[in-house]
């Protein structure tokens, strides 16, 4: 078990290293960020001085080595725009994103799980049909369009909710719903099919035969056995949730990691981009490690090696 966790942590380091290298290579091969930050009437001498100061004049391998040495210590340099430590800037925005992601995860679990279980247990009922239509629509509706439409209805027409920003539960409501919609649709669909699979197993038949109530059959014997595919998908989707946050945060002016990344990309503020890539890949691989550890707890037959 311990060896397993250690080797997985090693893999995490490898993934992070490779993603950083790929982004570094793309950034450096694509052009000169320095020129974009200079006023139009700049002298060549000043450009060169600026470049010298940031180390862009050194050979690429030297720059790469320096970049890695910094990255190991969590030093990605100073944001070209905000003149602040890049990783610090990214970490400062992290809580807002975690709050948003946490709220939508809560919404997802609170809505999608019961909905999926109920539509599996009451298969072909009206509820099942309504749920199926909703999940299919939820998966096809692009989040940014849903966001715009919600703003139109709840902010422009009804004036119930603010269009963007942060600070209260009212600010959180629409972004959390938009981020949760797609995710919840997928989880509800998968829950339904996983529960249906488990309901067909022999141990469910046994449980029913020995006279257990339907509540216990579903609650105790079925749910736990259908948890593995659901947890797997949730782990995989957690990474895409971070991707979805990029769009949701932009629409609702939510001051999180995603919005910062979009702005940094638009401004070619590459230290911030690299720091954000670092944080996202670390979080994502750790979430997946957590999911794998959960397997062993959910299903003791799973042995991690």
């Amino acid at each position: 078990m311990r060896a397993y966790v250690l080797s997985r942590l090693g893999q995490t380091a490898l993934v992070v290293f490779l993603s950083l290298t790929a982004v570094f290579a793309m950034v450096r091969l694509s052009g000169d960020p320095v020129l974009l930050f200079m006023p139009m009437d700049i002298q060549a001498k000043d450009v060169n001085e600026f470049r010298q100061r940031l180390g862009f004049n050194d050979p690429l391998p030297v720059q790469y080595g320096r970049f890695l040495a910094g990255a190991v210590r969590g030093d990605f340099g100073e944001s070209l725009r905000y003149k602040q430590d890049a990783l610090g800037l990214v970490l400062e925005r992290l809580p807002a994103t975690l709050l948003l992601a946490g709220a939508s995860l809560l919404l997802t679990v609170g809505i999608a799980l019961p909905l999926g279980v109920l539509s599996a247990v009451r298969r072909n009922s009206l509820l099942d049909h309504v749920a199926t239509v909703m999940t299919v629509l939820g998966q096809a509706t692009p989040g940014f369009w849903l966001g715009l439409m919600l703003i139109f209805v709840f902010s422009v027409k009804l004036r119930w909710l603010p269009t963007g920003g942060t600070g209260s539960l009212a600010h959180l409501a629409m972004p959390a719903v938009v981020l949760a919609a797609f995710f919840a649709a997928r989880i509800a669909r998968l829950t339904r099919s996983a529960v249906l699979d488990a309901l067909g197993e022999d141990y469910v038949l046994t449980a029913r035969a020995k006279g257990l109530g339907e509540g216990r059959v579903v609650g105790k014997h079925t749910l736990r056995n259908s948890a593995i595919p659901i947890v797997t998908l949730a782990g995989l989707e957690a990474g895409q949730l971070l991707g979805g946050a990029v769009i949701t945060e932009t629409i609702f002016a939510w001051p999180g990691l995603g919005r910062l990344t979009v702005q940094a990309l638009l401004n070619r503020d590459f230290p911030v981009v690299l720091a954000a890539v670092f944080l996202v890949s670390v979080m994502y691989t750790l979430i997946n490690l957590l999911v794998d550890l959960l397997y062993g707890w959910l299903d003791p037959r799973v042995r991690l090696r």
Binding site: V23, V246, L266
Partner: peptide
């Protein structure tokens, strides 16, 4: 493929676009 899948799809495509044009 594993490494690439460990990164949100939309963020990856967007980053490539921001860099290559």
């Amino acid at each position: 493929a594993d490494v690439q899948l460990s990164f949100p799809f939309i963020l990856l495509a967007m980053t490539i676009n921001a860099i290559v044009g």
